[in-house]
Design a protein around this nucleic acid. Structure first.
Lengths: 229, 229
DNA sequence: ATATAGCGTGTATTTTTTACACTAAGTAAT
DNA sequence: ATTACTTAGTGTAAAAAATACACGCTATAT
């Protein structure tokens, strides 16, 4: 019964666009490859799916191996399957994007056998990428642009406590346009999913701003109602 | 060089939620399987991806084999890869939805070797489905619900010439709620993507309605502007 | 004390969305 | 030709949401 399916020499891989937000910039993690094909090229982090793991498990594992982190927000968004996208054979790649809090302290140190090094690169200034990774990145970028308008994903890019200005920056950099400060704050607060922590930033030069937290429980109660962040 | 990748005994398949709109109802095409596993169960149409075809090509081919039709609107939307989703081995399935004009004359007669028969079933009254096809269907349904709000996909379900009432019906049945007739017409016409054909329905009992056509060229000019149908 | 840089706030205008009901036109039956 | 029936087609007022816009406040640094 287990032997009925044809055995194609085919393979799945996961590729991941790992977004991070740091110093007002949206960045993704790129790997400098240390193996053929595309040795010395920059590429999205990714790897093959093992036979005994689901796609989500595989994506989680691959990111963990790369960053040492667990509990990263991720979402599958498209599958790339052109016949010749991989020079060594038929590899269909399932693409995920992931969103990560790049806290100043929590520096991600990716280590992997096939990678020389890994760097965070501003999405506005990317090198040429290996395979069809340019396309995979662009589609991922489109996806988060759409999704940030309806889902509370911006918070995944920020530390737990954040200021409204920081939040606005995330929106501005992902949507690639300036937003009006007063209108943004009015609207964002009107959803009632931010909790005012009665706490201020600490250690900043100049006036400290109020810190907020995303309140998942209140958000859950809204479910069903379409929100337009 | 071609021998570097590990050879997993793994396979890709395409599964397709083929939506059609007929007599005010949203339907999908289901196959009654004539092969193990899940012999005699109802399932979404699907098949294995060949080694020399891209995913999109494969989806196009599979639908063609099933319906005899080409130029069907289709869109990849998610990939299902749980380890045990297929009892005969590791099969990762890339899901597409397709939208089809079910004209009264153009009756689709699906024929396939693994299928006993195929039927159009109202999405509100589906039998139990084989594999994880219930899940695949539900995710597809969600996707078109979202997409119909921003993309002009409703027209793919209608004949080339249609009335505003028919168009409204498509929205109502996909969004699963009643819409106000006057508001719907006002808004839909305001986009300027419908061409009034100065033509009436023919052969209907009771008053004939004006026929319209979706004007792709005008729509293309709007591109970049987010439309909210 | 003073300079600085980001914080925090309100109102008026425009646009969009919503709610709502009747007459017109064509068909079918008698 | 009258009548009954069914769907087509239309406008306005009210409410809600989105937009445009500028300055005083406050904590820090010197």
């Amino acid at each position: 019964m287990k032997e009925v399916l044809p055995k194609f020499n085919s393979t799945f891989s996961i590729d991941c666009v790992l977004f991070g937000f740091d110093e007002g910039e949206l960045k993704i993690l790129l790997i400098e490859r240390n193996e053929e094909p595309f040795k010395d090229w920059w590429a999205l982090p990714g790897n093959l799916v093992e036979e005994d793991e689901s796609l989500d498990q595989s994506a989680t594992r691959i990111l963990h191996e790369l960053t040492g982190l667990s509990d990263i927000y991720m979402e599958q968004y498209y599958t790339f399957g052109d016949v010749n996208r991989h020079p060594q054979g038929r590899v269909v790649s399932i693409a995920y994007y992931a969103l990560l809090r790049l806290g100043g302290d929590k520096i991600v140190k990716p280590i992997s056998n096939y990678a020389k090094q890994a760097y965070w690169r501003n999405v506005k200034d990317l090198p040429r990428l290996a395979f069809d990774h340019q396309q995979i990145f662009e589609k991922g970028m489109e996806k988060i642009k759409r999704r940030i308008k309806h889902q509370p994903i911006a918070f995944e890019l920020l530390p737990e406590k954040f200021t409204l200005t920081q939040l606005q920056n995330v929106y501005e950099v992902i949507l690639n346009k300036k937003l009006d400060k007063r209108n943004f704050r009015k609207k964002m607060l009107s959803f009632g999913v931010l909790r005012d922590l009665n706490e201020k930033q600490y250690g900043v030069s100049f006036r400290a701003a109020t810190l907020y937290k995303f309140d998942k429980r209140k958000y859950a109660k809204l479910f069903g109602k379409e929100i337009s962040f």
